[in-house]
Design a protein around this nucleic acid. Structure first.
Length: 222
DNA sequence: CTCCTGTCCT
DNA sequence: AGGACAGGAG
């Protein structure tokens, strides 16, 4: 697979337009209002396989009961699972609890790099990078379903995007586009664009802040 | 790499 | 009933 190098001016325009849109249109969420690492972590785990609107009330209740890593670590698993009831994918809650106990054991401070975060149960490549960028301001790229779709349309990437080679290229592209000044906001903006504007079917290109930079839009086939 | 989990859609 | 999804685990 060829090493696609993006045009620096195009990347600069993408960052500006996307962040301007995000500043004006981002959905208010409790973890954005107060993005401490533990809260970002809990939110990212809850957001796996679950939509933002569903997560918000669970997040509020969960954080009210388990406001810190230490509180979560000290709680019985049974109770953690009760607070998770209705969210599904209960392995997420078991892993979160187990990881909280590991973190508490190490002084209660979350690891600060994606590589270290990745070692905790329930934190894979995506979640590690999301926490590192959003909570710690590191320029770590994310690639989820939304980012995949947005990049594929922007750059007119064809073919099966699920293959290992394609995913590898997407991570590499995401690393090129991410704004080093505001990595967490940039990552969130890409994902939010994908979930609200650049949707899988019937994307709302007329409302898209980066349609002028989009190869698919210019070909009239998003 | 394959398998797994609940939900959503057909 | 069956398949797609979306992440992580093994």
């Amino acid at each position: 697979m060829s090493e696609l190098v993006l045009d620096a001016h195009w990347v600069e325009q993408l960052r500006r337009a996307l962040l301007r849109w995000f500043d004006a249109h981002k959905r208010p969420t409790p973890w954005r209002d107060n993005p401490d690492p533990y809260r970002v972590w809990v939110s990212e785990v809850m957001l796996q396989q679950t939509q933002t609107a569903t997560v918000i009330p669970y997040f509020e209740r969960f954080l009210a009961r388990f406001p810190t890593v230490q509180a979560l670590a000290a709680a019985p698993l049974e109770e953690v699972l009760r607070y998770w009831e209705g969210l599904g994918y209960y392995a997420r809650a078991r892993n979160l609890h187990k990881a909280a106990q590991q973190v508490a054991q190490n002084g209660g401070q979350l690891p600060t790099t994606a590589e270290q975060l990745r070692k905790l149960p329930g934190i894979g490549a995506y979640t590690a990078s999301a926490i590192a960028s959003i909570a710690y301001g590191q320029p770590t790229p994310v690639v989820d379903g939304n980012v995949t779709r947005v990049l594929a349309r922007l750059l007119w990437l064809k073919g099966d995007l699920k293959t290992t080679a394609a995913q590898k290229q997407l991570w590499q592209l995401s690393a090129q586009t991410i704004d080093p000044q505001r990595p967490g906001d940039f990552n969130q903006a890409m994902m939010e664009l994908g979930s609200t504007i650049c949707t899988p079917t019937q994307p709302r290109c007329s409302e898209c802040p980066v349609s002028h930079l989009c190869a698919a839009y210019q070909r009239n086939q998003p």
